[in-house]
């Protein structure tokens, strides 16, 4: 490109220069369009690669509870369940914490505190998933087994006995690994996502909004609750949805602590499997059978469509937000 540009400088031909300009524009345009093509190719290639099971079972696999590739049973229900349950646990833990973090860092803390703390929270997002998994195996799983899980189990038992019900949440044998622990590790991993985007949403709230409430005699928290949080609501919802997207697709850390059982979890202490961890764990041992490989690709297709829907929804909200607040410094 540079060599060509020098030539054009020597010729001084405006036509040549126009051709170079157009060439450069079209090269960048083609590459950028390539990104759209790539995303389309994702869906098409996965559909094509999963055509065996798609043709034979369609989407009924999603409702089928039996996964036994050796006898051609490819039910994905246990993994859909595992994915939904772990993601729900992760959101239940991560959303309140992330909102607290976002409010503290953007509304309550002075800048010299919020800067370094914000940086540390962001560091969580930079740790590779597999290292969370390693830490999970050697620190989190034993900790859950000895401290958290027994406490939750006895709490569950006492609620059961006082109310004469049986709540199937924290029951069954305590292994340390399992669906609940996977949810906890996911929560840790999506906190930076949710808190960072919520912070952006809070930061986008115009300053007069706060000053108005403070001027009327509100405390800092009251001004945050009344005039900031309601204003930033859409951005916070988008942040939560993006966190959900990350939780659903997260693979390695979950794979290393969820216990990898192919059955529908019967309680939160059960070992289980998410769609992503299923692929990570079992793809290698079974891909040689065309039908099994196709089932894995169908699982991947399902995961792709779920995350696409989640991300498109969240990004639409973010974009609406950017538009409604005047787009910040962009454009």
């Amino acid at each position: 490109m540079l060599r060509r540009s020098r030539n054009s400088g020597q010729t001084f031909s405006s036509r040549l220069r126009r051709i170079f300009d157009l060439t450069f524009l079209s090269v960048t345009l083609v590459v950028a369009l390539g990104l759209l093509a790539l995303l389309t190719a994702f869906v098409l290639v996965l559909i094509n690669a999963a055509h065996l099971t798609l043709a034979r079972y369609g989407i009924s696999l999603l409702g089928n509870p039996r996964w036994a590739p050796s006898s051609n049973h490819f039910g994905l229900l246990p993994f859909v369940d595992g994915t939904l349950i772990t993601a729900a646990i992760a959101l239940l833990i991560a959303v309140p914490l992330s909102l607290g973090i976002a409010i503290f860092l953007s509304e309550l803390a002075p800048r010299w505190i919020s800067e370094p703390l914000g940086y540390l929270v962001e560091l969580l997002a930079a740790v590779p998933s597999v290292i969370f998994g390693l830490w999970g195996i050697f620190v989190l799983v034993p900790f859950m087994r000895t401290s958290i899980d027994p406490a939750l189990a006895s709490a569950n038992a006492s609620v059961d006995s006082t109310l004469h019900v049986s709540i199937p949440l924290f029951t069954g044998p305590i292994e340390g690994s399992g669906v609940f622990t996977a949810g906890v590790i996911l929560a840790i991993m999506i906190i930076p996502t949710i808190s960072a985007i919520s912070r952006e949403a809070l930061r986008a709230v115009p300053q007069p909004q706060r000053e108005g409430a403070l001027g009327l005699g509100a405390t800092h928290w009251e001004s945050t609750r009344i005039s900031v949080l309601s204003y930033a609501r859409i951005g916070i919802i988008a942040a939560i949805i993006l966190g959900l997207g990350r939780a659903v697709g997260e693979t390695m850390a979950v794979t290393m602590v969820i216990g990898n059982s192919d059955f529908i979890p019967t309680s939160l202490f059960s070992q289980g499997q998410t769609i992503a961890s299923l692929i990570a764990n079992e793809f290698l041992s079974t891909y040689a059978s065309p039908l099994a490989a196709s089932a894995f690709l169908e699982a991947a297709l399902v995961l792709l469509l779920i995350t696409l829907a989640i991300n498109i929804g969240a990004r639409l909200l973010v974009w609406r937000l950017v538009k409604s607040t005047g787009g910040g410094g962009i454009e």
Binding site: A32, L33, L35, L36, L38, L39, A41, F42, V45, L46, N48, A49, L242, G245, R246, V248, G249, E250, T251, A276, I279, A280, F283, F296, L297, A300, L303, L304, T307, L308, I310, N311, I312, A314, R315, W319
Partner: peptide
């Protein structure tokens, strides 16, 4: 539109990208 879908792509699970490459 391109910018929007580029954002969406960052949310694609990496294992799905891996299986896409494998399928190709």
């Amino acid at each position: 539109v391109i910018s929007f879908f580029t954002d969406v792509m960052t949310g694609t699970p990496s294992i799905v990208v891996g299986l896409f490459a494998f399928a190709v």
